[in-house]
Design a protein around this nucleic acid. Structure first.
Length: 482
RNA sequence: CGCGGGAUAGAGCAGCAGUAGCUCGUCAGGCUCAUAACCUGAAGGUCGUUGGUGCAAAUCCAACUCCCGCAACCA
């Protein structure tokens, strides 16, 4: 099989708060794909990071009374820690305010844009001092900012750089329609196309230094302007690879790669499927090949929000149930494409049903029989099974992670049924040879399940595979919770 | 005419044209190897409403009702 070069990224969240379930979901989805591709012998670069330069970070730091850099680093560390705890196998983690290659790369990208695509324009708008951001007519209620009633809106006028998105309307349309820039799932592709067809307006790509308070990346050759954070943030996907100095990873995983995939949430699909590709078209840099758009996570059917107080810290779930149990829920019970719901009650239910009673119990059943009745370990390596399975390949090639999981769990059900039907435990007395044959076959199939689980539940997969290799019942993989 | 998503057994969801399925719960059996786990069976659905296309519709089309997001710089 020919080795492929595969790039995949999670989006870089701005770090004005602790990581939540949505971030964890995205990390897990991207990680499953990355691990799967490595198992398929592709050469993979999996990128993750934080968007440090957003103005929201500045506001959050100010209200916390901490220097922006400290504030950003503190929260970035929480993201790094969460990824570690979730066994996310990213090859690099870029912090956009820390890595000097990012600043250089973003400025290089700016300079690389066609001169006619960037122009200066006076921008006038109603600025809310409370929110510290511009408001559009639609944002206002009775001419006031709904967040800060009574507070006067200030009419601010300043010069900003704009990007001539309108130049790229038809090109973008063709790219998306032809799937040269593939958007998954189809509904998101339709949304993007309808947005393109409604007409693309140029967008602002800089802010005055006065408003950014000097935080962010300076616009090249203009000390009065800071880059608009999206221009800066989107470029992370290539700056992290070494775009600024044509580094080896940039050559390998961007310029010459077979696939370049961004995993993002539905709220930022426009930036990734329209703004970002347009910027790249202007500079002549290669485009991503796929954008995989996932939904949001609701809690008890409601949007997660601090006001409602229903925000769940992924760390709390991991503390109680472990990383693999959490990965399991995200992979199988949250749709990769639509919004999914999460509550601790539901989590516990599926944990007990599918992990404790399902996979955990099955592993114990089979390996106890094997340990007590087989003289030596089953030669699983001679079985010739590595990872591949047609159904899983097909599901994952379309990013249907939950379908792949359904399939694996159907195999688990098959094995439980087989034990009941073939009754090796009672055959041991009457015809031990037949019983042993059955047990050997069960071990092989358990091994196969372990292999299939590798991208999804890496720790558990290793424990199962190892148990079959040493012919020993594993420790309680998923203790039942009452 | 803003855009999109949802409405399927008591609950939560999958299916998206060809005998209605999964998890939990309920009831009745079986098994006793295993994490009081596992297996089988049963009860329970006019697949939001009304029309249409098809030999055939949760599945395609149209209209309507009710929920939920988004509405250009917000995972």
């Amino acid at each position: 099989m020919k080795e492929k070069k595969f790039f995949i990224s999670s989006s870089i969240p701005y770090v004005n708060a602790e990581p939540h379930l949505g971030h964890a979901q995205e990390f897990i989805e991207a990680d499953i794909i990355a691990r799967y591709r490595r198992l398929m012998d592709d050469t993979v670069f999996f990128l993750s990071g934080t968007d440090d330069n957003a103005q929201k970070n500045v506001q959050a730091a100010e209200s916390a009374g901490i220097p922006v850099a400290d504030y950003v680093n503190k929260h970035a560390k929480e993201f790094i820690d969460l990824e570690k705890r979730l066994n996310i196998s990213n090859d690099y983690f870029i912090q956009t305010s820390v890595d000097p290659r990012h600043r250089d790369g973003a400025q290089k990208l700016w300079r690389a844009c066609k001169p006619e695509d960037i122009y200066k324009k006076s921008y006038k708008g109603m600025y809310c001092l409370g929110c510290e951001e511009f408001k559009t007519e639609a944002d206002l209620v009775n001419g006031e900012c709904p967040e800060h009633p009574g507070k006067k809106l200030e009419e601010v006028e300043e010069e900003n750089y704009f990007f001539k998105l309108s130049n790229y309307q038809s090109k973008l349309k063709n790219l998306v329609e032809s799937d040269e820039l593939q958007i998954i799932p189809q509904t998101r592709k339709n949304e993007v196309l309808s947005f393109i067809n409604s007409g693309l307006e140029d967008f602002s790509i800089s802010r005055s230094v006065a408003r950014t308070k000097g935080w962010g990346i300076p616009v090249p050759d203009d000390e009065t302007q800071t880059m608009y954070v999206w221009f800066d943030a989107l470029s992370n996907y290539i700056t992290a690879l070494g775009y600024s100095d044509d580094g080896a990873d940039y050559e390998k995983f961007w310029k010459e790669s077979n696939e370049r995939v961004h995993v993002i949430g539905k709220g930022i699909s426009r930036f990734h499927t329209i703004y970002w590709p347009a910027m790249l078209l202007s500079t002549g840099v290669r485009l991503p090949s796929k954008v995989f758009v996932h939904g949001y996570i609701t809690v008890g059917g409601q949007k997660m929000s601090k006001t409602i107080g229903n925000v769940i810290d992924p760390n709390v779930v991991i503390d109680e149930y472990g990383a693999d149990a959490f990965r399991y829920y995200m992979a199988r019970h949250i749709s990769p494409f639509d919004d999914g719901d999460f509550t601790m009650e539901k989590f516990k239910e599926v944990y007990n049903a599918n992990l404790a009673n399902g996979l955990g119990n099955l592993s114990a059943r089979i390996m106890k029989m094997a340990q007590d009745n087989l003289d030596e370990p089953v030669k699983v390596d001679n079985y010739g099974y590595t990872f591949q399975d047609g159904y899983i390949d097909e599901s994952l090639s379309e990013y249907k992670i939950n379908m792949a999981m359904e399939y694996i769990w159907s195999k688990i059900g098959d094995l439980d049924r087989e034990i009941t039907e073939k009754r090796p435990f009672s055959l041991l007395k009457e015809s031990p040879e037949t019983a042993k044959e059955i047990i050997v076959n069960l071990v092989l199939n358990l091994y196969r399940v372990g292999c299939m689980l590798q991208p999804f539940l890496p720790e558990t997969a290793d424990l199962i595979i190892n148990a079959t290799r040493i012919n020993k019942k594993p420790e309680n993989l998923f203790p039942r919770k009452d």
